[in-house]
Nucleic acid binder design. Sequence first.
DNA 1: GTTTTTGAACTGACTGGTCAGTGCAAAAAC
DNA 2: GTTTTTGCACTGACCAGTCAGTTCAAAAAC
Lengths: 222, 222
Amino acid sequence: MNGRAGGPVTIGAMESSSTTPGGSARREATRQKLYEAAVTLIAEQGFSATTVDEIAERAGVAKGTVYYNFASKSVLFEELLRHGVGLLTASLREAAERTAREGGSRVDALDAMIRAGLVFIDRYPAFTQLYVAELWRTNRAWQSTLLVVRQQAVAVVEDVLREGVANGEFSEEIDVPLTAAALVGMVLVAALDWQSFQPERSLDEVHAALSRLLQGRAGGHR
Amino acid sequence: MNGRAGGPVTIGAMESSSTTPGGSARREATRQKLYEAAVTLIAEQGFSATTVDEIAERAGVAKGTVYYNFASKSVLFEELLRHGVGLLTASLREAAERTAREGGSRVDALDAMIRAGLVFIDRYPAFTQLYVAELWRTNRAWQSTLLVVRQQAVAVVEDVLREGVANGEFSEEIDVPLTAAALVGMVLVAALDWQSFQPERSLDEVHAALSRLLQGRAGGHR
DNA sequence: GTTTTTGAACTGACTGGTCAGTGCAAAAAC
DNA sequence: GTTTTTGCACTGACCAGTCAGTTCAAAAAC
């Protein structure tokens, strides 16, 4: 019943994390199942249109279990958000560090992060959908959670840009926050478009197109 | 009560259009009010979380009037989408044509379209929010409408890219559909981020940052 | 024996959609 | 030029259905 093909869409792992320090293994497994059920349903239908009964049914647990494990539908959603973005930032940071370790330039680091972003989106398309759909809303309960979560992800990109400016690799004229936002947006939207409207393309093709754009070989080839 | 400052957020004008060929002036005015009310509410809360009562109240009409003018809540939303994207594509196309008329290159055309996109988003932030939030959802009633509407907007960008490849201005290696999607995404996300998280920046600053990125002056300055 | 899950019943608030009826400006009848 | 009729646009109370969240006794897992 997964809109998209592919194996189990595990959003979790990410160790026990801050969510519940002393959760038993069994409980953690139940939460995991609930995350997975919730992420796909909410991505498809949106938060409000998704019922708790649906989530419980898809996770294969009783409705009471949802409320035994989470205080409310909103809380379940917020913890899900934190969970997923933790994974993403870890993956981005890892890519940047690996590049640095291997003596690559900052452009190489950005390129590696683009790929890491694409891999993440390819693996957890539902999470990405849901994130984009909710990020720019206003007046919602979890607005503050989203703000933190966004800052975490964008900060990784900003760091690399700043390092590049510091070591002279990038022009000092670049606007770090805006450029970081634009880069994240480019990857996010290109990837979602790929998944939704051009699923026949390979990850490498998408990566190549974005890489070219990053290095300015689209506007005026040389 | 408009989340953002500024004058009346008229999404309409766009002449009588195809929606209702023989609508009376009064009726058209009512529909316009309903569009304006719906676009901000749905952008803030999402489609499902927005009630028809709310829309009616904000528009200053009775609930029955909504159903007198639109078959259902979904139909109101679909017509709203078509309405807004019509405006956007018209604006993008106009920018591209103006540039061509003035003898600019295709890069100039892309640049002009970026600015036109930013101006549009600045003027109708709610519509943009709503569009992004709903575009990549699956299994929704208006999925087909969105597909058409997206294709319209992206096609304008693709056309310019193709022309650029044809006249040798762009490398033949560029992947037109993917690059177009990435460009649109870059503008969309950068603009939304600007509005939501960096509202102190001016349109010119945002435009400059995106322009630089387009011309590759971010990755490897020259 | 303690923790976790189950599953079904229940509540109270809310929602999309309906419909009989109102207001009113222009046309028709006189 | 006054009265009557027409029908479009709008109204808002109402209804049937839905949903988040609660409760709890009993079973299952640990």
